[in-house]
Design a protein around this nucleic acid. Structure first.
Ligand code: SF4
Ligand code: SF4
Lengths: 147, 147
DNA sequence: TTAATTCGGACCAAAAACGTCCGATATATA
DNA sequence: TATATATCGGACGTTTTTGGTCCGAATTAA
């Protein structure tokens, strides 16, 4: 019942990109060093982000990554699901295909409501929101090394 | 990012107990067979439930388990945390004690809000609610074998 | 005394999380 | 063209978590 590192790193990575001028490319290596995330691991995470259409990749020398959309258009949930896969919380049919309650189960309904509560917060906050909040924090507490 | 089987089985088990007359004892074996859950696994889960004070255990022949509280007094979250341990969702300091953002991180704040959203639904619904809902379902769809 | 039942913990297998590594591919530039 | 620099894609490996099993000990009713 936890967010994975991959998910968190993905968001952190995109936050890093979003602080650049729109369209400016940034290398994995820079993100990795500044956010203190293993480079190879982050590389893999970014590949999912590319496949999901959230970032654009430019290969070869002088290449790198750049955000593919406006940060205000990217709910954090979308980032997390891009790297972790769809969040399902409870898997009913998937896990217990033989369960006789499937189709009408109070527990199942509750789990769904719980999941919605979770996703709600992650959907309402966009990458842009996150950055705005972070900048506010760093203003009053000048110590952050995020970028 | 999922509820564990243990958590689900715990709730199912308590639902089963709650359908008995208050104080009536029920054996693991019955719960296990009727809910189609491995007996030994369920036994272990019930031990956590006992330790958490949610059910009372009576040992020896003719023993069993009985709810220790009024179902209306038991939020589902309490059941789940009794068997899975505290739900933390994001572990910040625990997982990255070296993270320089700890104390002021927008991401951390968001995760906390998300977690609250999740726990909210699980706290508002009690064991009693769950049973009431389930009975309503079984009324309109007479097929369930939940006791 | 015996049968029935929970308690407690050791143990195990499978899956998921968390990475590492490396060859292939693409591109800028000298 | 040759070379240095990046990402791409997937195979691989380690650790942790999940999902159980098993069994002897303790407790109790009959
Ligand atoms: S939540 Fe209900 S329907 Fe889903 S697997 Fe569990 S018992 Fe079956
Ligand atoms: S959420 Fe923020 S404070 Fe928590 S570990 Fe991640 S970066 Fe650090």
């Amino acid at each position: 019942m936890q967010i994975t590192r991959a998910g968190e790193y993905g968001v952190m990575g995109l936050m890093h990109l979003a602080r650049r001028r729109p369209g400016q490319r940034t290398m994995i290596d820079e993100v990795s060093r500044q956010q203190r995330i293993s480079k190879s691991f982050l590389a893999k995470i970014f590949q999912s982000l590319v496949k999901a259409g959230l970032v654009r990749s430019i290969r070869g020398a002088g290449g790198g990554f750049a955000l593919a959309k406006n940060p205000a258009q990217i709910p954090v949930l979308e980032i997390i699901e891009a790297v972790e896969g769809r969040i399902v919380f409870h898997r009913c049919k998937m896990a217990r295909p033989d369960c006789e309650h499937v189709g009408g189960c109070a527990l199942c309904g509750l789990f769904e409501r719980a999941q919605d509560g979770l996703k709600d917060a992650l959907t309402r906050t966009t990458l842009a929101d996150l950055i705005e909040q972070q900048e506010k924090i760093e203003l009053t507490q000048p110590k952050g090394r995020l970028n």
